[in-house]
């Protein structure tokens, strides 16, 4: 279990910052800019939420295994593949959170900052981001829970190799297959704990949003 936990944490450590960056950037883009193909991008971004993970996994399997350049990188059934699986599954949640957050920032506030001498970057870091942060972090908490619990896509493209690609959810699966229920329970309890923490964080952030934000 320790190795599974370590792998899961490794994945989170890499995936969460990436999710934060990608989620914030895409969320801002979708809430503030109009560009051709915006509907398509939104559609594709939300697809992982509704597609069965095995279907997502199948397509990723072929993408990584068949595309010339990606095939040479030999990503399949490695830790980076597990990271990709977690990233894909969690990205919609991160983007949605960020998008809601940025959409909730009145454009007049951003204009006020501009009229006070701010360039676009400063407006983003000093006005948009601080005011959107509740939604943004709520989205991140949900995305973290989703990334940690990723099972289907991981199984399809990273496999279930103890010590190499076996994350906590896969570990539980493996224990149950071997009729080692105590091990499964221990890992499950850990995941329940982490998921609860994430959910409570989300609730706390959501509650605060209705109060005067600061």
């Amino acid at each position: 279990m320790v190795s599974a936990l370590r792998l899961s944490l490794q994945i989170l450590a890499v995936v969460l910052p990436l999710l934060f960056l990608a989620g914030t950037a895409l969320g801002w883009l979708l809430s503030r800019k109009h560009f051709p193909g915006k509907r398509l991008v939104t559609f594709l971004l939300h697809l992982p939420l509704v597609l069965p993970p095995t279907v997502m996994g199948l397509y990723l399997l072929f993408l990584l295994g068949q595309t010339p350049l990606l095939r040479e990188m030999k990503l399949l059934f490695t830790l980076p593949a597990a990271m990709l699986a977690a990233f894909t599954a969690a990205l919609p949640l991160a983007v949605t959170g960020a998008r809601t957050g940025f959409a909730g920032v009145p454009q007049n506030l951003e204009n006020a900052a501009r009229s006070l001498g701010d360039g676009e970057w400063r407006v983003f870091f000093r006005i948009s981001l601080p005011l959107a942060r509740r939604s943004l972090f709520a989205g991140m908490a949900l995305a973290a829970a989703r990334a940690l619990g990723e099972f289907g896509i991981t199984l399809m493209i990273a496999g279930n190799m103890p010590g190499r690609t076996q994350t906590l959810p896969l570990y539980i699966y493996g224990r149950v297959e071997m009729m080692d229920f105590s091990g499964a329970h221990a890992a499950a309890l850990l995941l329940v704990f982490v998921a609860s923490v994430c959910l409570l964080t989300v609730h706390r952030l959501e509650e605060g949003r209705h109060e005067p934000s600061r």
């Binding site: 009145p106 007049n108 506030l109 204009n111 006020a112 900052a113 501009r114 009229s115 006070l116 001498g117 701010d118 360039g119 676009e120 400063r122 006005i127 601080p130 005011l131 005067p212 934000s213 600061r214």
Partner: peptide
């Protein structure tokens, strides 16, 4: 760009920054 025009503006809805104190707003 707006930030370099040296034109100040008071908005109809005021657009005070809710996450900053009064002093921080004025010093912005």
């Amino acid at each position: 760009p707006p930030g370099k025009r040296r034109i100040g503006m008071v908005f109809q809805d005021l657009a005070l920054f809710p996450h900053l104190t009064v002093l921080e707003n004025v010093a912005y």
